[in-house]
Amino acid sequence: MIDFELEQMIENPEWCLVLNHYSQQQLQTKKQDPEFDGWIIRQNEVEGVALEHLPRIHGKLIAFDLLKFQISSRDSGVFYKVTRAGQKMLPKLQKMLQQQSASEQSESEYSYSKSA
């Protein structure tokens, strides 16, 4: 994993939401069906992500080798799967985003206390 990819993911939280969404879908489906191969039908709605951003986000995640796709058939559409690199990146991303959020929260609390 290249630092650039990690930086881009942190700077674009919607990308993290989409990658995490596919990862969670894979985990849930695998629990229900042990024979599940990991391919998830294209998600057209992801909480916290604008619908018009999804095509671009899918493309970026594929370009960074965090998500791969396959076209099953004309009728069933496109399927996606989180790559090994994507699975490895998710815990790091979540940790870094939590730290960033905590840092921003403490900064806002500090500036609020200074203005009071």
Score class of each variant (00 low, 15 high):
I10V: 10
S111R: 13
L51M: 07
A116W: 01
F36R: 14
M96F: 03
P91M: 00
E14R: 11
V49T: 08
M1R: 03
G77N: 01
Q94L: 03
P55K: 02
K30P: 05
G77R: 03
G48Y: 14
I2P: 02
I40C: 02
L97Y: 01
E7M: 05
C16P: 02
V18E: 09
N12T: 10
K30S: 15
S106W: 11
V18I: 13
L54G: 06
Q98W: 01
K30R: 15
K81P: 12
Y22K: 05
S23P: 10
S23V: 02
L6A: 01
K114A: 10
Q43R: 03
Q28C: 11
A116H: 04
K92V: 10
M9A: 09
S106I: 04
N20F: 14
Q24W: 04
E109H: 06
L6K: 05
S72T: 12
E11Y: 12
Q28L: 15
Q99A: 05
I40S: 00
D33V: 09
I41K: 02
P34G: 06
Q8S: 08
M96G: 00
L19T: 06
L19V: 06
A50E: 14
G38S: 08
I2R: 07
Q70I: 03
Q98I: 01
D33Y: 02
E45F: 13
E109I: 13
P34S: 11
E47T: 15
K31C: 11
D65K: 08
I62Y: 11
E47V: 12
V49C: 03
D37L: 02
F79E: 12
E47L: 09
Q28S: 14
T83D: 10
H58G: 02
P13M: 03
I57H: 04
M9R: 06
S76T: 15
H53C: 08
S106G: 01
G38A: 01
D3N: 08
D3W: 05
I71L: 10
I10C: 03
W15G: 04
I2Y: 06
Q70W: 04
Y80Q: 02
S115F: 09
Q32Y: 03
M96W: 07
Y110A: 09
M89R: 13
Y110L: 06
D75A: 12
Q32W: 02
S76K: 12
K88D: 14
E11K: 13
